[in-house]
Amino acid sequence: MKALPVVLPDNVHVFERGWLSSNNVLMLGRHEATLVDSGYLIHAPQTLDLVRHALKGRRLDRIVNTHLHSDHCGGNATLQAHYGSETLVPVSELDNVRHWDEDKLSFKATGQQCQRFSADGVLTPGDKLTMADMEWQVMGAPGHDAHSLLLYCPQEAILISADALWQNGFGVIFPELDGESGFIEERATLDLIASLDVRVVIPGHGAVFTDVAAALKRARTRLDFLSGNPVRNAEYAVKVLLKFLLLERQRMALADVPALFASLPIIQAASRRYLDKTPEETAEWTIKQLVRACSARVESGYLLNDG
Rank of each mutant, 00 (worst) to 15 (best):
A188V: 01
D197Y: 03
K239S: 11
A253I: 01
V200C: 08
L28Y: 04
M27R: 04
A219P: 01
P230E: 12
V122T: 15
A132D: 00
R98D: 04
F225A: 15
D191M: 12
D101A: 08
L105A: 03
G75W: 06
V198N: 09
D61E: 11
Q112D: 11
Y236I: 11
E86M: 13
R58F: 10
A146D: 15
F209K: 05
A194F: 08
A270N: 11
D191W: 05
I184N: 09
E180N: 14
H31V: 06
V91D: 09
R199T: 04
L264P: 00
H43R: 12
G206M: 07
K217R: 14
M27I: 06
R218G: 00
G74T: 03
P175I: 03
N11M: 06
Y40D: 12
G39N: 10
V64K: 03
T130L: 14
P154F: 13
L223K: 03
V14R: 00
I63N: 07
S227M: 14
V201N: 03
F107A: 05
V208L: 05
R249L: 01
D61M: 07
P45G: 02
N168V: 03
L165N: 08
P203D: 05
M139T: 08
V6K: 00
A132H: 02
V231F: 08
N65S: 14
A219W: 03
A157Q: 15
L68D: 01
L304Y: 11
I267P: 00
G143E: 10
A207T: 09
Q167V: 02
N11H: 11
W285D: 13
V238G: 02
L50R: 12
R17P: 02
A262G: 03
I42G: 01
V97W: 14
R52A: 14
V36C: 10
W136Q: 08
D211N: 15
D145A: 14
A81I: 01
L254H: 06
D120P: 02
P9T: 10
D61V: 04
L192F: 03
A207V: 11
Q80L: 07
R98Q: 15
M134L: 14
K277E: 14
G143N: 05
A234H: 12
G39C: 09
D120R: 06
G301I: 07
V138C: 14
A157W: 04
R297I: 01
R222E: 15
S85E: 11
A237L: 07
